[in-house]
Every structure is written in structure tokens, then in C-alpha cells.
Simulated scan of single mutants.
Amino acid sequence: MKNLSSVLPSAQNLLPVESLSEFASRIEREFLTDSAIAVSLYTDNIRIVSDIEISAGGDVSTPIHDALNWKYTRFGHQAKPTLHAAIFLNEDGSPWQGKLSRPRTDAQKDKEQKYETPIGNGSRAYLPTVNRENRRSIANRYGVEVPPPGESFWDWLELHPEIPIIITEGGKKSLCLLSQG
């Protein structure tokens, strides 16, 4: 008798796919509970999307492909499981990175690629939206005037060299540090 993996080498792709709500719950738990990110920073900076979304009017969009500058092909030769993503947004609303529900495997490193950066963006600093509450916390910690709402937090930060800039490994750690003031 043949082993199932020898007959269907991609049998794992046939397993049930995580629903959008299951993915959203998992990401929320990972960010809010496991990474200690403030709810307001999470809701301001993370968007949960599916690979294909259909509006009430029937318009189709491809938010993951659009965010990551991937080419979307409608009529491929391979069926793929549904994909969801948590898109990290910059203060200006542009996508900084995405965390996929089914990470791709980097063939050269034989390792899962946990995060995807938009094609053509290169290495860039993550500059998320920082709300009034977190602005106040940071300003109080360093004894400076609270930045006004409606202005770029990052432009304000540039004017305050007394506030240290901490380089982190990724977006979740950045949001966690901002959550702590």
C-alpha cells in the first residue's frame, strides 16, 4: 500500500484552511496578548485581509497582492488555498509588511518566511500611526510637550533628539515599545 504523501506530495495543502475570523483571532491574540501591544496601536496599524475580497456591489479586489506589489493572476494552473494576511501600515497608510496565514518557504534557506515586504520597497523603517494616548505617554516619559494631534508623530520626534530611538527587529516589537511609552 502506498503512503499518501507519495501519491499526493502536497497533501498538506488539502487540509482545512483557517477561516478569516480564525486567522484574525489568532493574530489578535499573538499581537495583543503575546506581544503586549496596546489595542489602539493594533487597531490603528494592522489590517486583516483575504487574498480576494468581493464588495456588496460585486467588485473584486486583491488586497494582499496590492499591498505587497505582487502580480495577481486570475487563471493560474494551480489551485491554491485561501490566503489571509495581517498588513502592517505606516502612518501615511502605506503597507510596510505583511504576515501571511500560510507563510511561503524560502527555497534557498529552506525556512518559512514569516513576514513579506512589498516588492520594490527594500529595507525601510516602520513608521506606524501613534495615537494621542501613546504620544502623551512618550512625551511624559521624556518631559517634553505632547505632539499635537493631526501632525506626524515621526516629524515631531525628529525635532526631539532627547528622545532615544530604539532599533528593533520588527514591527511587532516596535508596536510593543510604543505601547510601553
Rank of each mutant, 00 (worst) to 15 (best):
P164R: 12
A85Y: 06
N3V: 06
N90S: 10
G76H: 09
H160Q: 10
T168Y: 07
L83C: 10
W154L: 06
W96M: 07
P95D: 05
F88P: 04
F75R: 11
E30R: 14
I138C: 11
D59P: 00
A24T: 13
T105W: 09
Q113S: 10
Q12R: 10
D51Y: 03
L14C: 01
N13E: 08
S137A: 15
N69H: 14
Y115L: 13
E169V: 06
L175R: 00
W70N: 04
I138Y: 00
H65A: 15
G58E: 06
E158S: 13
N140A: 07
L178Y: 03
P9T: 05
R74V: 07
E162Y: 04
E158L: 13
H77M: 13
D155G: 05
K111I: 02
S35M: 02
S61E: 08
E18F: 03
I52M: 02
L41C: 01
L157H: 11
A24F: 02
L15F: 15
G93V: 07
Q97Y: 04
P128T: 11
Q12N: 09
K173L: 01
V144P: 00
N134G: 01
A56K: 15
P103L: 11
R47K: 14
G120C: 11
E112A: 15
F153D: 00
R132L: 06
T33Y: 00
E30H: 12
L159Q: 14
Y42H: 12
G98N: 05
S19A: 06
S123T: 10
A79N: 05
D34E: 15
K172E: 05
R74L: 08
A79Y: 11
P95W: 12
Q113F: 02
T105S: 07
I165A: 08
T62N: 07
V49S: 02
S137G: 05
D106V: 13
L14G: 00
V39T: 10
H84R: 10
R74E: 14
K99E: 11
S25M: 06
I138P: 02
S50F: 03
V146L: 04
T168P: 08
P148G: 15
R74T: 12
P149Q: 10
P161D: 12
E158V: 12
L175F: 05
W70L: 15
K114L: 12
G120T: 00
L83N: 06
E162N: 13
R104A: 13
I52S: 11
L20I: 13
P149S: 07
L83T: 13
Q108I: 09
K99A: 12
N3W: 06
D59C: 05
R132A: 13
D110N: 12
T129H: 11
K99M: 14
L89D: 01
L177A: 05
A56G: 08
T129C: 08
N140G: 01
H77Y: 07
L8Y: 08
V60T: 15
L178H: 03
I165Q: 12
Y42F: 15
E28G: 02
T117Y: 08
N131V: 02
L20Q: 09
L127C: 09
N69I: 07
A85D: 10
P161H: 10
I138L: 14
I119M: 04
V17I: 15
I119F: 14
G98H: 01
M1G: 14
E145C: 05
S6A: 10
F88Q: 02
A86R: 10
Y72Q: 11
G76Y: 07
S137Y: 03
Q180Y: 10
P147N: 00
D34H: 05
K114H: 03
K109Q: 14
E151T: 15
L4V: 13
